[in-house]
């Protein structure tokens, strides 16, 4: 018996020491470590910062949207609760700034018209082939759920946007690639999209790279998870309900079982 237990302890000890060292040797495939940022929307009670999302939309609109589509989002979403919460009118104006393909008209031709709130965000390219052709063969991915589609989410996007550096001397860059400390493999086709002053901020926020990256990361997080605030809010209510319910059920269970315990004590005392 003793020997058996010692053997198992030994096996466990060996596996416990062996696994972490194996893990550290393996990290290359998982990409560089991403630093966690502080976000206003952290659970369990977080909310999006409306002004930040509005700035983030601006960065998206003037920078990202030149190459990246965002096919799951509509202009109406910009006005809905829990998001940037532009006014209905402002969202309609933002929609109208985009020329949307529609049709066919009575003569069978497609035509361009100003966007409406119900339109999806205008995509910069008609199809993937056009996108590749315009970007040296690389396809700029759709950004709708990007913040859920990469490990680290908004932290990763922020790290990526602020991660452009000179390539270290020992790294040979492929043609048309750019060195990025956060990107897995460090060679990314997208050139550094942000530079100080490329987007104008009107709310007094400093228009620097750090703020651009942070704001657009928050915006993409909202775009990927537009019901996040509703989820937290409902969650808080349901959790309180369940906790109280659990206490009541526990008391009820004790009350019911007390009869049995009482009988047992009587039986014991009699014995």
């Amino acid at each position: 018996m003793r020997n058996v237990s010692k053997l198992f302890a030994a096996i466990l000890a060996v596996s416990a020491t062996a696994l972490p060292s194996a893990a550290s040797a393996e990290d290359a495939g998982h990409g560089p470590a991403i630093e966690a940022q502080e976000w206003s929307f952290a659970p369990p009670f977080g909310q999006f910062d409306r002004a930040q999302l509005q700035r983030g939309y601006k960065v998206y609109q003037f920078v990202c949207a030149n190459c990246h589509s965002m096919n799951l989002l509509s202009y109406r979403n910009l006005a809905q609760p829990g998001g940037p919460q532009f006014s209905e009118k402002a969202a309609a104006t933002l929609a109208a700034q985009a020329q949307i393909a529609d049709g066919p008209d009575d003569t069978g031709k497609m035509f361009q018209r100003p966007g409406r709130p119900s339109d999806r965000f205008r995509a910069p390219y008609a199809n993937d082939q056009a996108a590749r052709a315009a970007n040296g063969g690389a396809l700029p991915p759709d950004l709708s759920v990007m913040a859920k589609a990469r490990p680290g989410g908004p932290d990763y996007i922020y790290a990526l946007l602020t991660g452009y550096e000179e390539a270290p001397a020992d790294v040979t860059m492929s043609k048309g690639m750019h060195y990025n400390s956060a990107f897995p493999g460090h060679q990314i086709a997208m050139p550094n999209p942000l530079a100080e002053g490329v987007v104008e901020y009107t709310d007094g926020t400093e228009p620097n790279l750090n703020n651009y990256a942070k704001d657009v990361s928050a915006f993409l997080m909202w775009a990927a998870e537009p019901t996040l605030e509703a989820r937290y809010r409902l969650g808080a209510r349901i959790m309180i309900f369940l906790l109280v319910f659990a206490v009541i059920m526990y008391l009820a269970k004790k009350a019911v079982w007390a009869r049995v315990h009482k009988r047992d004590h009587a039986a014991k005392n009699a014995a």
């Binding site: 009820a252 007390a258 315990h261």
Partner: peptide, 23 residues
């Protein structure tokens, strides 16, 4: 067990059971 003692009170027990059912 003193923690079980109050459970001998049937009215209190019923209140808890009704509460559980209501929840």
């Amino acid at each position: 067990n003193p923690s079980l003692a109050y459970d001998d009170d049937p009215s209190r027990r019923d209140v808890i059971l009704i509460g559980a059912g209501a929840f």
